[in-house]
């Protein structure tokens, strides 16, 4: 018998309503993008959870390494002036 294949894996992202972010739901197996979309619909949206789906081959996703996260995300921490609360507003100023 030849080696059985369960087909390639695809990552599934679902938009729950128009205008919302696409959120990762899980993965499916499929031979091509069309089958991946259909399988994603059957697997992750049986109760109207989505208005739109993205699928992407698992191997095409690059993820950051959790070990590097301190270094990788560090530059954000010392730039508090990116937050509105950093600024001193004159007393009495409205709607700002």
């Amino acid at each position: 018998m030849t080696k059985d294949s369960q087909l390639a894996t695809w990552e599934v992202f679902i938009q729950s309503k128009p205008g919302a972010n696409y959120i990762h739901a899980g993965s499916v197996h499929a031979s091509d993008n069309k089958m991946a979309l259909q399988n994603a619909r059957d697997t992750y949206t049986r109760r109207g959870e989505g208005t739109s789906i993205w699928v992407a081959p698992t191997e095409s996703i690059t993820a950051s390494n959790p070990d590097d996260s301190e270094m990788f995300f560090d530059p954000a921490n010392d730039k508090v002036y990116r937050l509105p609360t950093f600024y001193v507003m004159p007393e009495g100023a409205k709607a700002i």
Partner: peptide, 25 residues
């Protein structure tokens, strides 16, 4: 519908288990 759900639940779990580096095969 219930049995289809059970199949779906199997797939959620296989999908989650695959993230540990074990294949569906």
């Amino acid at each position: 519908a219930k049995i289809q759900d059970e199949g779906g639940h199997g797939l959620y779990l296989y999908s989650a288990a695959e993230t540990l580096g074990i294949s569906r095969d």
